[in-house]
């Protein structure tokens, strides 16, 4: 059997014995998901790339403490989210202006409706406002919105990642969306 065909647990077990190639397979399996989660949190391509890679390096260094039988991504996610939150806190301290981030340039809008140029412009503005409002949410609110809306994870998957009941996921989504809707009252 080729190493790429092994399941996560087997790959982790090999990594714990010092097999870097096995860890490479794990990285390639989860790199996209990791990058997009980070992008949702920090809103910048470079930072998302750097943080998701840094989280993998830290995961590798701590892999001996990983308990086999658990989900790799759930464990890795805890490292990644803390790195992202740390960066967001640093930005806040440095009075990081959102305008420094190229807004929505990494967003792909699935809007098939055709309209006049001014309507298209308005729609673009709307998407930019929504993205800005998401970025201005609190850490936990942003997290739940990113996982549901941008990662399109099911409630069950989110509950597993956040280690909380599905009911809590739904409640957190409600309050995050309520805050978003309030922020965007004039735009929607």
């Amino acid at each position: 059997m080729r190493i790429e065909e092994l399941d996560d647990q087997r790959l982790i077990s090999l990594t714990q014995k010092g097999n870097k190639q096995a860890f490479g397979v794990l990285v390639k399996r989860y790199m996209r998901r990791a990058y997009y989660v980070a992008l949702g949190f920090v809103g910048s391509h470079e930072d998302a790339l750097d943080l998701s890679q840094d989280a993998f390096v830290r995961a590798y260094r701590s892999i001996k403490r990983f308990e086999l039988g658990k989900q790799f991504f759930t464990w890795y996610y805890q490292i990644l989210r803390n790195l992202c939150f740390n960066l967001l806190r640093k930005r806040k301290k440095a009075i990081y202006s959102f305008s420094e981030i190229p807004e929505t340039e990494f967003l792909r809008i699935h809007d098939d409706s055709e309209g006049r140029p001014d309507q298209n412009y308005e729609r673009k503005e709307l998407y930019a406002s929504v993205w800005k409002a998401v970025q201005n949410l609190g850490e936990l609110e942003k997290e739940i919105i990113v996982l549901r809306e941008f990662q399109e994870l099911s409630y069950q998957e989110i509950a597993e990642i956040l280690k909380c009941p599905v009911g809590t996921v739904m409640s957190r989504l409600y309050y995050a969306r309520k805050k978003l809707a309030r922020e965007l009252k004039d735009s929607l």
């Binding site: 997009y36 990494f106 967003l107 792909r108 709307l126 998407y127 929504v130 941008f150 929607l188």
Partner: peptide
Amino acid sequence: FSKLKEVTQKMKFKEP
């Protein structure tokens, strides 16, 4: 919430 959902579900990340 429906209006908000309508907008957010059209917003996806671009592939780098």
